[in-house]
Design a protein around this nucleic acid. Structure first.
Length: 251
DNA sequence: AGTGAACCTACAATGGGCAT
DNA sequence: ATGCCCATTGTAGGTTCACT
């Protein structure tokens, strides 16, 4: 490694996400107050969008638990300094290397900021009265600074999940309806090319992948609904003509 | 100089996803 | 069902820095 690494921890890369979280933390209004577990809940829901993994969030959970207050204020010093051993203790005994990797993930996501001491150890220096003069560890102020952003992200994720569920329901109902209508049509001797209808139905249904993005399902659902309308039309017009002929025979 | 805490890299094992 | 690819995880060995 011929790189100029004259500074300590030179191997730790600085990413743009980290910069932005640092900027956000600095620009945070002093009177902002959030409840850390509410924010954490939103972060959990927006996990994918944030690029955090479930295990990384287990670490964040542990980190937050080291801050004594439930309510976090924008103007207070929001730094926690648990040793890796302590973190491991609160994170289901995960191995040290895994812990470090996930801490790195949290930093890259901009959920926490490293406040490194000169030797990389995490500790707080206390003054005469026991008050904290300086703390080295992890700054959790992004939790406060970005709380609104996390809430919005969580809402977007919830909306997407709902939309996905809705389109799956649409598909299921449509499939069931079409099968029923085809059965009825054949049973009642409705004139139509039922073989072709069944073929079209199979072709559309066969396109449905096991796992698909919502947009793909939307497209298939639209196709299926078109077929649904076509079949429905055949049955309806048959019913109408039957009624008409019934009326004629009455007169 | 020795110790402790934190970090890194390299390599093996594990397990999920995917095409065959 | 099978084998391959890839990401994640776990382990081992080594480095850096501060403190004593």
């Amino acid at each position: 490694d011929t790189h100029i690494s004259t500074t300590p921890f030179g191997r730790r890369p600085m990413t743009l996400g980290m910069i932005s979280s640092q900027v956000a933390a600095k620009a945070m209004p002093a009177d902002l107050t959030v409840h850390k577990w509410h924010v954490f809940q939103n972060i959990k829901e927006a996990r994918g969008a944030l690029g955090a993994t479930d295990r990384a969030l287990a670490i964040l959970d542990a980190l937050l638990s080291f801050h004594p207050e439930t309510a976090l204020y924008g103007d207070s010093e929001l730094i926690v300094w648990p040793s890796n051993e302590q973190l491991i203790g609160r994170a289901n005994g995960m191995p040290p290397s895994t812990l470090r990797r996930h801490l790195a993930v949290l930093v890259e996501c901009g959920l926490i900021i490293r406040r490194d001491s000169p030797n990389g150890k995490r500790y707080a220096r206390k003054g005469q009265g026991g008050e904290i003069e300086q703390a080295y560890g992890f700054d959790i102020s992004p939790i406060v600074a970005r709380a609104a952003e996390f809430k919005e992200l969580a809402e977007v994720v919830r909306a997407e999940k709902k939309a996905y569920r809705v389109v799956r329901e649409r598909l299921t109902i449509c499939r069931r309806d079409i099968v029923k209508m085809i059965d009825a049509g054949i049973e009642e001797g409705v004139p139509a090319n039922w073989g072709r209808v069944q073929q079209t139905y199979q072709a559309i249904v066969g396109q449905i992948p096991r796992t698909a993005p919502r947009q793909a399902l939307e497209a298939i659902a639209a196709e299926l609904e078109e077929l649904w309308a076509e079949v429905r039309e055949a049955l309806e017009s048959f019913v109408k003509t039957e009624n008409m002929s019934a009326n004629e025979s009455h007169t």
